[in-house]
Computed example of a mutant assay.
Amino acid sequence: MRSAGDKTLGGAETPPTSKYDRLIAAARSGAPALTIVAHPCDAASLQGALEARDEGLIVPILVGPQHRIRDVAQAQGLDLGAVEIVDMPHSHASAAEAVKLVREGRGELLMKGSLHTDELMREVAAGATGLRTERRISHVFIMDVPGHAETLFITDAAINIFPDLDAKRDIVQNAVDLWAGIGLGVPRVAILSAVETVTTKIPTTLEAAALCKMADRGQITGALVDGPLAFDNAISPEAAAIKGIVSPVAGHAQILVVPDLEAGNMLAKNLTFLSRADAAGIVLGARVPIILTSRADSVRARLASCAVAALYAAARRHAASAAAV
């Protein structure tokens, strides 16, 4: 599907209008990222990888039982073309081999197929053979919310259950680096809690205040950070004005840092199911970005996940080349 840049009746190209379409168009303009796809053995995961290939976002290498992958492709009418398939007997072996290929430099991105997230992330997090770095691994939802002017990042709503202050510093920095890496500029980051005042009765307000001071001291870089902020004060200029909050972030936040996984998961799903938002997903902090897709994801969300990861891979590739000069 090519919703961005389609031809009008007069022959001119229309500019991409939605937030996801702009990201997909930007990624399509660069070189596709070599992507290791772990165990794409159902229709949704295989179709997602092949659609991203057809859009020019990624070049997939499929890792899994070859006969199952080919059977799914035939049943769904999917064209595998010249896609490389690394034959592995089952999902655990597929996850281990996919991570191994990334470690060997065969891929810039890792993409989850039809295996459980825990199964893949266990291989990613393995001490001797995984993809860990000094940075805490965290997840970012890239939300396209109808009626909201800007892309929203929500983090972390999928990996860290009750992150401590040090983990939250990495969670914030991962999201900031992604925002800048895909060309969106300097983000406004809101550290969310239930209220906008610091109180010992709500420990997450103390952590929010500490994170803001860490940003002041250069322990978090590349962003405007404010908190604690309640959700309404973070995204609504009117709500922030009523509360008398004067801040470049309040009312205009672009990255929402949630107190814990439960709060983030509920926030993202509320936006998805009540506001009909799309939610793309990326895991950061490992050696390469990891694309997490779900069978419930729309086609646009799957493509947006691949587009964001491809843009970030291109930025990392450019940074590595510049550093080598």
Results as ranks from 00 to 15, higher is better:
Trp179Lys: 03
Arg103Asn: 14
Ala75Asn: 08
His252Phe: 12
Gly185Glu: 06
Leu184Thr: 02
Asp118Trp: 04
Lys7Asn: 04
Pro15Glu: 12
Ile291Ala: 07
Leu50Ser: 01
Ala93Arg: 11
Thr293Arg: 02
Gly81His: 06
Leu46Asp: 00
Ala208His: 10
Lys213Tyr: 12
Ile171Cys: 04
Ala277His: 07
Asp21Pro: 00
Leu211Tyr: 12
Gly218Tyr: 11
Ala98Phe: 02
Cys41His: 00
Thr8Ser: 13
Ala49Val: 02
Phe153His: 08
Pro32Phe: 10
Ser94Asn: 07
Arg68Phe: 02
Ala128Val: 05
Ile202Tyr: 11
Val288Met: 07
Arg103Ser: 04
Ser236Asn: 05
Asp297Ala: 02
Asp232Ala: 10
Glu150Val: 01
Pro16Lys: 12
Gln254Cys: 10
Gly77Lys: 01
Ser305Thr: 06
Arg103Met: 01
Pro16Asn: 09
Ile291Ser: 06
Ser114Thr: 00
His116Thr: 03
Pro146Leu: 14
Pro248Trp: 10
Ala310Asp: 04
Thr14Ala: 15
Ala319Gln: 12
Ala73Gly: 02
His148Lys: 09
Lys112Gln: 07
Ser247Glu: 01
Val102Tyr: 13
Asp71Pro: 00
Gly264Ile: 08
Met214Glu: 07
Ala125Phe: 14
Ser247Lys: 00
His90Asn: 15
Val249Ser: 11
Leu62Lys: 04
Leu46Gly: 05
Met121Cys: 03
Leu192Ile: 12
Glu97Asn: 06
Gly181Asn: 03
Lys7Ala: 13
Asn160Pro: 07
Thr117Val: 05
Trp179Val: 06
Cys41Ala: 11
His67Ile: 06
Leu224Trp: 10
Pro259Tyr: 12
His318Ile: 06
Arg106Ile: 05
Ile202Met: 14
Thr35Asn: 03
Phe231Met: 13
Lys201His: 15
Ser29Phe: 02
Asp260Phe: 14
Ala314Phe: 00
Val325Leu: 14
Glu97Pro: 08
Leu62Trp: 04
Asp164Pro: 07
Asn270Asp: 13
Leu184Met: 14
His39Ala: 06
Ile61Ala: 01
Val140Phe: 04
Ala322Lys: 14
Arg122Gln: 09
Ser275Thr: 05
Trp179Cys: 05
Ala157Gln: 08
Ala277Met: 08
Ala324Met: 13
Ala215Gln: 08
Val195Lys: 10
Ile69Pro: 03
Met1Ile: 03
Val257Thr: 09
Glu207Phe: 15
Val172Pro: 02
His90Lys: 13
Glu123Leu: 01
Ile69Ser: 01
Gly10Trp: 11
Ile220Asp: 05
Arg188Thr: 04
Ala250Lys: 08
Ile171Lys: 04
Ala44Asn: 07
Ile24Phe: 10
Ile85Glu: 07
Ala241Thr: 08
Lys7Thr: 02
Lys7Gly: 01
His252Ile: 00
Ala315Cys: 01
Ile282Met: 06
Glu150Asp: 15
Asp42Pro: 00
Met88Phe: 09
Ser247Pro: 03
Leu110Asp: 06
Asp42Trp: 02
Asp226Trp: 14
Pro32Glu: 08
Glu97Gln: 14
Leu23Pro: 00
Thr205Trp: 14
Arg106Leu: 01
Ala175Val: 01
